[in-house]
Simulated scan of single mutants.
Amino acid sequence: MQPHKRQRLETGLSLAQVIRSFGSPERPSQEGLCAKQEEEPHTKEEVDEEEEEDVGAEEVVKEEPEPKEESVDAQEDLAEPKEESLEEELAWKEEDDEEKQEEEEEGIYSQSTAAGTSTSASQILSQASWQPLSQDLEATEHGLELADAASMQEPRGGFADLNPEEKEKLLTVSESLTREIGMKAFYTFDVRTCREDLKKLVHTFFSRYRQTESEDHYFDTEAIYQNNQWRFASTLTTPSFYGRSFRGHPMLLRSMAETSACRTFLEDAEAREISRWLPPPSRVLRREILAKFNKDWKEAMLQRGIRPKLVQQEAIQALSEKLRSLGCRLALWDGNA
């Protein structure tokens, strides 16, 4: 009987082998059962042995771990990454919100700077829930002191924000600047000794008197017949000098006639007086102001929120007004602008 049993197990028709190979028993069809009964006559002992094997197979199936518990654990494992991914998404969303808020704050600051409103940038940013602490932290991260955080903003101060000592330093009229006052070649003009181009002297006078290189004076020249020959007579018209005109002597050449008109202007008493009090040219005033600045003073101004370049521009204007109080004259101040 034992060889017959081994042969039957090798055929793969026993329930235990089916369970081991596929994990769950399959019910054989009726045709298969009929075929087994026809092929193999079963004795009573064989039937009992088969029942014992079936019982053992059922116990083996019961001892195996249930797949449901494994699936529950797997679902928990899958749920954990989902929760982690949700937390990451929330963190990213918070970072995006912070970046958007910073961009809005920068936009408000740039708009307030461009508009030039009287409202300070710090007040506008405070309305947008801006926290000054964040700027202080940013300053310390870059190696700056908290007191220097204000210097990160664009300085807007000018000449008016300087202290009295600094203003006095810039507005002091030096000896070299005093020597630049007036136009000596004009008020010392002598036709017998002058070797200057008279038309050039007139142009220089008006460029300093009007503070511009553009010309508004002009010549009116006409041909006249005198002493049996043709001559030219020229008149210098000066709209920016009280609208006056200065006529020269008749000359053989047109250029000589224009020079004669310039001589008449250079010999005018009022014109000579004004030429004595012409302020220095703008380039001289600028050179005088810039020479008083140094690197340390500029850095100190920036720390106080003052723009050195703006101070220079306004100081030149302030120095020009001081020269006016000393008696200097310009077309604008004389009402000839």
Rank of each mutant, 00 (worst) to 15 (best):
R324D: 13
E99F: 13
T204Q: 12
E59S: 13
Q127A: 09
F206L: 07
E299S: 12
A149I: 11
S134C: 10
L162G: 00
L86D: 11
G327T: 05
S151T: 12
E258C: 06
N336Q: 07
L302Q: 06
G107C: 08
G23M: 14
D136Y: 02
I316F: 00
L86Y: 08
S255G: 03
H4V: 01
L236R: 04
S176W: 01
P250I: 02
R192G: 07
S245T: 15
A149L: 09
K82I: 15
L310F: 03
Q313I: 14
C262R: 10
D77M: 09
T188E: 14
M1D: 12
D296W: 12
R329G: 10
E88H: 09
K100Q: 11
E53I: 02
Q211H: 09
T178C: 10
K93M: 11
E63P: 00
S260E: 07
E31H: 13
P308D: 06
F293M: 09
Q313Y: 10
A160F: 02
L170S: 09
P239D: 11
K295N: 08
K62W: 08
V55D: 12
A318C: 03
E58L: 14
A16E: 08
K309V: 05
S134V: 06
E314K: 10
D197E: 15
V173A: 05
N228E: 13
F189K: 00
G107A: 14
P132A: 14
R208S: 09
A261M: 02
S255Y: 10
W277N: 14
D148Y: 01
P3L: 10
L253M: 11
S245D: 06
A318V: 01
S240T: 15
S320F: 10
H249K: 03
E299P: 00
P67R: 11
A269W: 04
A121V: 06
D190S: 15
G32W: 06
A318P: 02
L266I: 05
R27H: 11
R287F: 01
C194P: 00
